[in-house]
Each structure stands twice: as structure tokens, then as C-alpha cells.
């Protein structure tokens, strides 16, 4: 088997604790992530699941190097990108893309859709950036009529399609999707998931899909990482982890999902946190 696209070894991140310690001098540090090790295989989809405060978004931001880890290392296609400066990262930026949770805040409200998608292409010296941007709009089934609109004129689902178009337009090898459906209605969510599956298959993408919803991850991912309080409590092939979770936290997460089926027992025997 070929070597993985992304290798993460002993990754850690700590930040100064803004709520504690003296106003001047060194603050105590908060450990957000601790000792994370995993691989993301080429053209694989990894699901990262956890509840609020688990560090899943922080981990995602380390993977695309929006944050600099304070321990361990991240190899992308064999290159150590753990501590690369912005100028060194430029060469890798086209390969490492991200779709954000809130498309309203991740799309600059003052730019048109066309500019939002074509801008990054121009930045990387791509010829005919605007044509390529229109093609990307087609790929996400939005249509070229949207090119001249502004983000606030779009619905939530349409905005998220723009977010995806912007990421795929650069022709990346890796895309990080951070809770990209959590603000959407279920019917819109289903459409976005279908689109994502289509793009992953057609464009041979490697995808990391961050979500609080195990059901979504079960559908999209090949492998899963379960995070709790900044540590991996369980990881493995998706079917294995679902069929026989080894960690009680994974089992609790699974049991807490209200499936749309009648089940009187689900609300009985209240267990305490």
C-alpha cells in the first residue's frame, strides 16, 4: 500500500490561558490537543468526531496549518509542514484546502461570488481564472447566474456550495470540511453530502470530515477518529468502530443519537453525566 497522504505523529497544541494567571508575564498554558497520531490514506475519507470542546476544529486547523502545532509533526506527502512559515507554505496551499462551518462568515461579505472563487486562482497565477471559477460553480451545481451575486443574497445551502467551489477550484489534493452542514436544514444537508460524495469520487480527493454527528461520518468516511478532551479515544475502520466500539465514550455518542424510529426505551433509564 502506498504511503499515506498525511501522517500525524504525537501532535500537540497548547495556548496561553487567557482566563487565568497574571496580567503580565507568562500565563499558564492550556493543552488543547495531546499526543495525536494517525494517518490519512491517499483518496481516503477520514471522519473526525467529538463534542464541543473535544478539539476537533483545532485539530482541523492544524492539518491545514492555520494553526502551528506546539508539539509533534505533520507530514503532507512526505514534506514536514509542521512549522513552515507562510512563505514556505505557499507552494502547498493549493493542495491543502478547507471548507468552513459557517459560510456566512467564511465568505467576505463585500466580494461577489465570482471574485470569491476567482481571487484565489489569480493569486496562484492560474490563467483564465474567471472561466475556471465559472466551471467550479457548475461543478457544485450552482450555475453561472450566481457569479455576480453577493453572499448575503444566497441561501445557507447555496453559500456552502460557494465555499466548496472555492476549495475545489484550486484543484487540491486534500480538503478539510469542518462541520460544513451543521447550520443547514436536513434536506439541504442531504444535498451537500451528496455533492461532497460526488466530488470526492470524481476529483480523487482526500477528505477529512469533521462533525459532531456520527451518522454523517458513518455515511461519508472510511476511517474514523473519536476525539475527547483533546485526545484520541478510539480510531479505526468505520465499520469496525461502529459494530464494536471499544471505548465507552464512542458507545455513548452512538447511543445518544435519536434515530427517526419509534423506541420507548430510548428515553427510559436516564443515565447521569
Amino acid at each position: 500500500m502506498a504511503e499515506p497522504l498525511i501522517e500525524v505523529r504525537d501532535l500537540g497544541l497548547s495556548l496561553p490561558d487567557m482566563n487565568a494567571g497574571p496580567r503580565l508575564g507568562r500565563r499558564p498554558r492550556l493543552e488543547i490537543l495531546r499526543g495525536l497520531s494517525f494517518d490519512i490514506p491517499r483518496r481516503g475519507v477520514v471522519g473526525i468526531v467529538g463534542e464541543s470542546g473535544s478539539g476537533k476544529s483545532t485539530l482541523g486547523r492544524c492539518l491545514v496549518r492555520l494553526l502551528e502545532p506546539s508539539a509533534g509533526r505533520i507530514l503532507f506527502d512526505g514534506h514536514d509542514i509542521t512549522h513552515m512559515a507562510p512563505s514556505e507554505l505557499t507552494g502547498h496551499r493549493r493542495d491543502l484546502q478547507m471548507v468552513f462551518q459557517d459560510p456566512m462568515s467564511s465568505l467576505n461579505p463585500r466580494h461577489t461570488i465570482l471574485r470569491l472563487i476567482a481571487g484565489p486562482l489569480k493569486l496562484h497565477g492560474v490563467e483564465q481564472a474567471e472561466d475556471k471559477a465559472r466551471e467550479a460553480l457548475d461543478r457544485v451545481h450552482l450555475g453561472r447566474a450566481f457569479a455576480d451575486r453577493y453572499p448575503h443574497q444566497l441561501s445557507g445551502g447555496q453559500r456552502q456550495r460557494v465555499g466548496i467551489a472555492r476549495a475545489i477550484a484550486l484543484g487540491p489534493r486534500f480538503i478539510l470540511a469542518d462541520e460544513i452542514t451543521s447550520g443547514l436544514d436536513v434536506s439541504t444537508q442531504a444535498q451537500i453530502v451528496a455533492l461532497l460524495e460526488e466530488l470526492v469520487a470524481d476529483m480523487h480527493l482526500t477528505l477529512a470530515f469533521i462533525s459532531h454527528d456520527l451518522s454523517l461520518i458513518r455515511r461519508l468516511a472510511d476511517t474514523i477518529i473519536v476525539l475527547k478532551a483533546g485526545e484520541i479515544v478510539e480510531q479505526g475502520r468505520i465499520a469496525d468502530v461502529f459494530d464494536a466500539p471499544t471505548h465507552p465514550y464512542t458507545a455513548a455518542l452512538k447511543a445518544a443519537i435519536p434515530l427517526p424510529t419509534l423506541d420507548d426505551a430510548w428515553l427510559e433509564n436516564a443515565q447521569e453525566a
Binding site: 478547507m98 459557517d102 467564511s106 465568505l107 467576505n108 481571487g119 493569486l123 472555492r166
Partner: peptide, 22 residues
């Protein structure tokens, strides 16, 4: 702190470019 600033970084804008354009 808005995501579109992070987004600009992800697509490869330089820090000063991000400041000016975003």
C-alpha cells in the same frame, strides 16, 4: 477572527495581502 480571513490564508494569501484585501 472571522473565517474568511482564515479562508484567505488557506487559499494562500500573504498576511499583508489578507489585511489589505479581506
Amino acid at each position: 477572527r472571522m473565517d474568511y480571513v482564515a479562508s484567505a490564508t488557506v487559499v494562500g494569501r500573504s498576511p499583508l495581502g489578507t489585511l489589505w484585501h479581506e
